[in-house]
């Protein structure tokens, strides 16, 4: 295979673009896709301070790498989930990357700051691990971004992630989630703006970018992922994609461009009133937010978090 741009030997082919690229032009292609997504959906202004949620995986480290290369003031946020060796190893990857890029990594450890880790938290409220984990990550990301005075929170969701989540949301006609599944969630009272600059890149591309740039990311799967429905949806979508390249792109961007405006109208009409959590002050539609309910069950005697523990700053610059 030959590079579409320079005709040199290609290192990767992307079937949905009917194109192959050499290393140099592939990296350029990835950056361009990020720039296009950010411009099209007005994600981040030049002077804004960005907090990038990094897990130690390929997507988030790639995103941080590209934003730094593009000259954004981007710090990383690593959340310690308390998942044994897996958490230690992924923290190490994030910290190594930060040190190599001389970038600043904020670290919040769930056990230190809130008194519980994901395995215990999930057990105590009888949620699936990934559901307890998603809830905790969303809470901590928003809290860390607001506390740190960041303008915007960026996450490494790629096209495969978004297509799989959309597929699941449609299978269950999960209307609340459909309304919120946008490339940009604007800031609202108590919530920082959230953006997903990698939506134009498949996860094969984010992995390839990381390998080609020598980004050492965690390849091992989280041990709690067993039975995760998202993986099943991804496998199904990959079958469809193999038969008809471009399927995932069509599903997701068709939704964003053609269906989302309708869902947004429904959302605006039926949205529940948002108040403040009686424990932590975070925005919630109930009296106590879902995160505080989980924390109170999982760690009844632990400090309340917010005041008790400043997010710990990583010693690396």
């Amino acid at each position: 295979m030959k590079c579409r741009v320079c005709r040199e030997k290609a290192v990767i082919d992307i079937r949905r673009h009917n194109a192959a690229f050499c290393r140099e032009h592939f990296i350029h292609h990835c950056r361009q896709q990020v720039v296009r997504a950010m411009e099209k959906f007005d994600m981040i202004a030049r002077e804004e301070r960005v907090l990038v949620a990094v897990s130690g995986g390929k997507d988030s480290l790639m995103l941080w790498d590209v934003l730094l290369d593009l000259g954004y003031a981007a710090d990383g946020l690593y959340i310690g989930l308390g998942i044994g060796e897996y958490s230690d190893a992924s923290h190490e990857k994030a910290a190594e990357f930060a040190a190599r890029r001389e970038a600043h990594l904020v670290v919040v450890d769930l056990e230190t700051s809130y008194g519980f880790g994901i395995p215990g938290g999930a057990r105590s409220v009888r949620r699936a691990a990934c559901s307890a984990c998603g809830l905790s990550k969303r809470y901590v990301m928003n809290d860390a971004a607001i506390t740190g005075g960041y303008d915007v929170l960026a996450t490494g969701h790629n096209l495969d992630d978004e297509a799989a989540v959309l597929f699941g949301n449609v299978l269950h006609w999960n209307m609340d989630a459909l309304v919120r599944q946008r490339p940009v969630l604007p800031a609202s009272r108590g919530f920082v703006r959230k953006v997903k600059p990698l939506i134009r890149l498949g996860e094969r591309e984010t992995a390839a970018y990381s390998v080609l740039n020598g980004i050492d990311y965690i390849v091992e799967e989280c041990p709690m992922v067993e039975g995760n429905t998202g993986l099943r949806y991804k496998a199904a979508l990959n079958e469809l994609e193999t038969a008809a390249p471009g399927t995932k792109n069509q599903l997701y961007f068709g939704f964003v461009e053609r269906a989302l405006p309708h869902f947004e109208q429904l959302g605006a009409a039926g949205g529940a009133a948002v108040g403040e959590c009686g424990r932590c002050g975070a925005p919630t539609t109930g009296d106590v937010c879902a995160f505080c309910r989980m924390r109170e069950t999982a760690a009844p005697s632990a400090p309340r978090g917010a005041e008790g523990s400043e997010p710990e700053l990583d010693p690396t610059p």
Partner: peptide, 10 residues
């Protein structure tokens, strides 16, 4: 041969 699919919650 390295899998590129990662699971988990958004």
């Amino acid at each position: 041969i390295r899998p590129v699919i990662s699971g988990g919650a958004p």
